[in-house]
Design a protein around this nucleic acid. Sequence first.
DNA 1: CAGTATCCCCCGAGATACTG
DNA 2: CAGTATCTCGGGGGATACTG
Lengths: 111, 111
Amino acid sequence: MKKSRYTCGLDAAMDIMGGKWKVLILWGLCDGPRRFGEVRREVPGISERILTLQLREMEKAGLVLREDYHQIPPKVVYSLTEFGSSLLAALIPLGDWGAEHMARIEAIPRD
Amino acid sequence: MKKSRYTCGLDAAMDIMGGKWKVLILWGLCDGPRRFGEVRREVPGISERILTLQLREMEKAGLVLREDYHQIPPKVVYSLTEFGSSLLAALIPLGDWGAEHMARIEAIPRD
DNA sequence: CAGTATCCCCCGAGATACTG
DNA sequence: CAGTATCTCGGGGGATACTG
């Protein structure tokens, strides 16, 4: 048993969206279902392996739905669940904040 | 040059509050200025070294203000800047979301 | 009290190659 | 097309001891 309780809601929220990519994947799915390759294009810079891992974790967390059409060539479609949508909604103000201060954030020295 | 541009506001926001502790430190400062030891108590589980490092980064980022009273025994007070406060404000909905779904988040299998 | 100074370690993340 | 299978690596984070 690692940690049975969070100190606050922010703690819990940061935990479920942990990692470098989950939030961007969420964002990439906001306009509707996407196939694996489409998600990959929505999230520039992510490797196939990492995308797979992140999507699996998000599926376990109930944030995304994975639908495998079991056909060849393969077709798998990912979409936000209600739970994932509600998280994304809660992230909108943060996204707005980031957009508003992007120039300033970019100007912060990186070391 | 690592990355000169973010893909969206969320990307930038996640970058500046990166790491495991910054959000909790922000949260710990929301009720007013705190001395080093007080912040430590507000953020259970963090070590002195890590707290120092995180606070330094947040100071560089302009999120917190560090005031050294240059006295012995030492007294250093940390507080949120306007910038930090605005970020914290943008995080409120996320904190609410996390609090609302804490039980569910806690129930997610951790491996 | 508010930090440094060391040392260590895990794992998130990347690159590349291969497959049903 | 949508993934595995390996291998590798860096550094963020942790524990502990020491200091002005």
